[in-house]
Design a protein around this nucleic acid. Structure first.
Lengths: 223, 223
DNA sequence: TGACATAGTGTTGATTCGACACTAAGTTGG
DNA sequence: CCAACTTAGTGTCGAATCAACACTATGTCA
């Protein structure tokens, strides 16, 4: 346990909360990564994460990580999986409770790319520290699966959005194009969005109607 | 951390693996519970579980718990959720990685009810220690949901079984009766079972054909 | 040999799903 | 001002799936 103590000072458990923070932008599903400065994996990219404090639940730890990364208060978050293979952290024993979070594009824009933290397209990730690549892959699968049976995609949308924009989010996550008419039929049947009456103008073409969520903050399981 | 050290001796992490072990028998979904002898919750029933050893993954811990409860080697097992609310263990800080496992009725019969461990119908559980009732409830929901989109129910079946038996398992977990013809159509379409050619005689009525899994040990995601 | 109990088997109507193409409305540039 | 451009928005039809439903088959047992 000599090495483990380097990450396990008094008052801390060897349990971390790591968060796969997703957003959609530039026609890609993107994940927030931080540059590590300390060993191990110094210089590598890693998920935002923290060791749990004494008297802090994994949920709270995840929320603290999100809060630390500029006001990511109030974003969708759910537990993903717990990774506890001995040796996953070269320093010693750390069990990681992984979460994933969804950030609307409007909020993501407030988190600019910098030397220490930036958005990276999930389809073209560099090697990540620890087993974080596995976490990202699992989060991506889970998110993709949930598109089919929940309204979770709305958590990635700004307050007002067009149906084309929403369809783009589905396509980027699922990785395949969708039929426009079938998509709109499906969303309409869910009764999860409603038109605001406003329109959105962009480019030399017909403006699109803007929609908003009917029950903000509520992810419904459907069918 | 004074109190926590009671459960966190050197060489151990304050992380446990707790397993919701399900089987189906007597027309009920049943869970394996152990009688606690030590404080806290002395005298209460609890899920089988253990603190992780140093250099042991949560998966290995869960498997060790299963192995300790008579030869529950080779049963289906998956990670359920991680419970880490501070205070969930009155002794101190323990983060519990919960699993659920499925035991075929034939194997479950080899684990008799005794003073220290017994099967209990999930529909009529006594109060459980810690947050174990929550774990059982979540495992039940997850199992029930998975019936619809996977072949997981086969993990609860003995090597050979009748379709009526299989239907009973679906009904007991889902909590509602199913139509016999639709059920058999659905199972047939999955191509996950095949007749053995044998029959099963029980009672004064027509014998039933016995089936076996086509790909033992493989849980398929369907549709 | 007749009563009994569970095994086993198809059809039909309703619903859902997937494929598919054109018109609408605003912008822009000549 | 009008023609070209670009994305928005809309409906039908055939296929597949799903849910409801009842009778015959085959063994045991008295």
């Amino acid at each position: 346990m000599r090495e483990a103590e380097a990450v396990c000072p008094a008052g801390w458990l060897g349990v971390s909360a790591d968060v796969v923070v997703f957003s959609v932008g530039d026609d890609a599903l993107r994940v927030r990564l931080q540059r590590r400065h300390r060993t191990p994996f110094a210089g590598s990219l890693a998920l935002p994460g923290t060791l749990l404090r004494d008297d802090e639940s994994p949920e709270e730890g995840a929320q603290r990580v999100l809060g630390g990364d500029v006001g990511l208060d109030r974003v969708y978050r759910e537990q993903l999986y717990t990774f506890g293979r001995p040796g996953r952290d070269p320093r010693g024993r750390v069990v990681a409770v992984a979460y994933f979070a969804l950030v609307p594009a409007s909020v993501a824009a407030g988190l600019p790319d910098g030397p220490d933290a930036a958005w990276h397209a999930v389809d073209a990730l560099p090697p990540l520290a620890f087993d974080h690549a596995e976490m990202v892959a699992m989060a991506h699968r889970r998110l993709s699966a949930k598109l089919a049976y929940s309204t979770i995609a709305l958590e990635l949308m700004p307050e007002r959005f067009t149906l084309s924009h929403l369809q783009g989010v589905y396509e980027v996550i699922g990785g395949e194009p969708l039929d426009k008419r079938n998509f709109r039929k499906r969303i309409g049947a869910l009764e999860c969005v409603e038109p605001t009456g406003e329109t959105y103008r962009a480019g030399n073409h017909r403006p699109a109607r803007l929609y908003r969520r009917r029950t903000p903050g509520r992810v419904e399981i459907i069918k």
